[in-house]
């Protein structure tokens, strides 16, 4: 049985449709990334799974529970790492981990956790004296203090410098090696590629692509883009599926089989007696794919 089962999930705030009908499934032991720009609906989706928000429609099952029921047994089995650090500054690192650990039936030893996140030197330091990166590591420790089966990581490295990012990645990889299932949100392509077994790209409240990081890139880069300008003719007789007409009469064709499709196009042009002005054939890079999928190349 899948750990996470999401079907046709939607969430609206009045007229604002944050999530507009998405499906995905996460299996035991997977690191699944929701990748997308700010405002794509990732955090809303994760917060619905965490039980922080109610969905507008669709069905959600996580570890066999409906998160909106806010079942205590469900929350005993998940760990949440929030975007913003939120622990009382007045406590020490050890005290905070002890207090949060007491809430879970099976919890990790405080000393062991402090070691996992590398805060040994700060064990008895008040949280207010921690640096931003140390706070984030404490945050990770608090997210896994209950020895959860499923961990939610909401943009775990946003605002990190490159070395802190590497450290955080190592921690996540260590968690995964313990057999934990991890749902990660990120707006960094390289983070999803580095950590995740499977990625769903979100844009504007929808999942626009899904697959392993490799296949996601490969599958998409197989879609070669053929463009040209052909004035005064209809492309209806072309017989190709993915044809659109852009500005200035530019024809844009996405193709899985560019050699064949080019042949078709040139044959069509010759028989119609038109010249294919400005003909180009391009294979988009991985970054292009992401930007195109998420629509952030408009910015």
């Amino acid at each position: 049985m899948a750990i996470i089962d999401v079907e046709n999930l939607a969430k609206s705030y009045g007229d604002v449709h944050a999530v507009r009908g998405i499906d995905f499934h996460v299996e035991q032991g997977e690191i699944f990334a929701l990748l997308g720009p700010n405002g794509a609906g990732k955090s809303t989706t994760v917060e619905i799974l965490e039980g922080h928000r109610a969905r507008t429609s669709g069905s959600v099952s996580v570890l066999g529970y409906d998160p909106t029921e806010r079942d205590r047994a469900y929350r005993e089995r998940i760990g949440i790492v929030l975007q913003e650090t939120a622990v009382e500054d007045q406590l020490s690192v050890k005290e905070a981990i002890d207090i949060y650990g007491s809430m879970y039936p099976k919890h990790r030893a405080t000393g062991e956790l402090i070691e996992i996140v590398g805060l040994e030197a700060k064990t008895d330091a008040r949280i207010k004296t921690l640096s931003g990166g140390q706070r984030r590591r404490l945050e990770l420790a608090l997210g896994i203090v209950g020895d959860p089966d499923l961990i939610f990581l909401d943009e775990p490295t946003t605002g990190f410098d490159p070395s802190a990012r590497r450290q955080a990645w190592t921690i996540v990889e260590n968690l995964a090696s313990l057999g934990k299932t991890i749902l990660l949100t990120t707006h960094y392509m390289d983070e999803a590629q580095h950590l995740a077994n499977r990625v769903a790209v979100m844009a504007d409240g929808l999942i626009v692509a899904e697959g392993t990081p490799e296949s996601l890139g490969d599958r998409q880069s197989k879609k070669t883009v053929i463009t040209f300008v052909a004035v005064g003719v209809s492309t209806d007789s072309l017989g190709l599926a993915d044809v659109s007409t852009g500005d200035n009469g530019r024809i844009v064709i996405s193709s899985d089989e560019p050699t064949r499709d080019l042949h078709t196009i040139t044959g069509w042009a010759i028989s119609a007696g038109v010249e294919l002005t400005d003909l180009s054939v391009t294979r988009p890079s991985l970054e292009d794919v992401y930007l195109e999928l998420t629509g952030s190349n408009d910015e």
Partner: peptide, 17 residues
């Protein structure tokens, strides 16, 4: 103030009733 800082949200995500 704890709500402003997100502490209540964190508590809400734990099994603590």
């Amino acid at each position: 103030y704890q709500r402003d800082m997100g502490i209540l949200k964190r508590i809400r995500g734990t099994p603590l009733p």
